[in-house]
Amino acid sequence: MNHLTDEAQLKEIARQIRVDIVEMLFRAGSGHLGGSLSATDILVALFFGQMRLTPADPCGAGQDRFILSKGHAAPLLYAVLARLGCFPREELFTLRQFGSILQGHPDSSCTPGVEIPTGSLGQGLSIANGLALAARLSGDPSRIYVLLGDGEVQEGQIWEAAMSAAHYRLDNLTAILDRNRLQIDGRTAEVMSIEPLHLKWEAFGWHTLQVDGHSISELLAAFKACEQVKGRPSIIIAHTVKGKGVSIFEGQKKYHGVAPNAEEYQQALKELGGV
């Protein structure tokens, strides 16, 4: 796929993806809004500006692979996959409905472009490690990308996987941590402290970067920097705002797993600029 390096183009894609997310959730009447909007710029920069992949068929050997460990951001992943051509855009608006190819959380058995089911938190990093080991064994130059949530790193398995990725020197692996500072019950600092995050990952042997998770240029530069690292895995701690892009959703824990009502939907479309 030809990458878009023009920041204005990528920003416009991110805007359209955000519109899709709001539309999907409004029509579905449920779903995870805040964490989909916080990670939108990350996934747009990654899929349209960085990863080497076959757009309509991003799973499979010989290309870069992506695991959505924070599986509740499924609406974001689906909007990206639709735009890549994995399935028609109309399917987006069947999200969470009976018979839809788009389940509430990612399910590889029915959604083209999804590598593996996720949604039960804490498991995606181990899976990404397995993919990275498989690629290395096969002499496949693929890079493996995995998106983690910040509340998600409260799961013990994340730190098991952090240890094993460093032990096996998985320099073909880049993790991105969506540091939006909110989880279902409130601020991560109040629910269960996870700081100092960058020191923890460094102590576990990871190459650790911190970026503004809404800056396309910072994200692209970080992805490139991680490609140059040898002998250890990389993590990009992307500082984000939950619900980014719509003023009434931004920084509000309420919108973690709630769809917009009609009034909120109208305001969101107005702020985002519509389709």
Binding site: R65, I116, A128, L131, L133, E160, Y168
Partner: peptide, 27 residues
């Protein structure tokens, strides 16, 4: 080269095996 000791970490053991299977291996 085809053996991975995951240490005392059974959850990571199963997750890594799953990833290896997605990557085409027979774990």
């Amino acid at each position: 080269d085809r053996f991975f000791n995951m240490g005392v970490a059974e959850q990571d053991l199963m997750g890594t095996a799953a990833g290896l299977a997605v990557g085409g291996k027979i774990p």
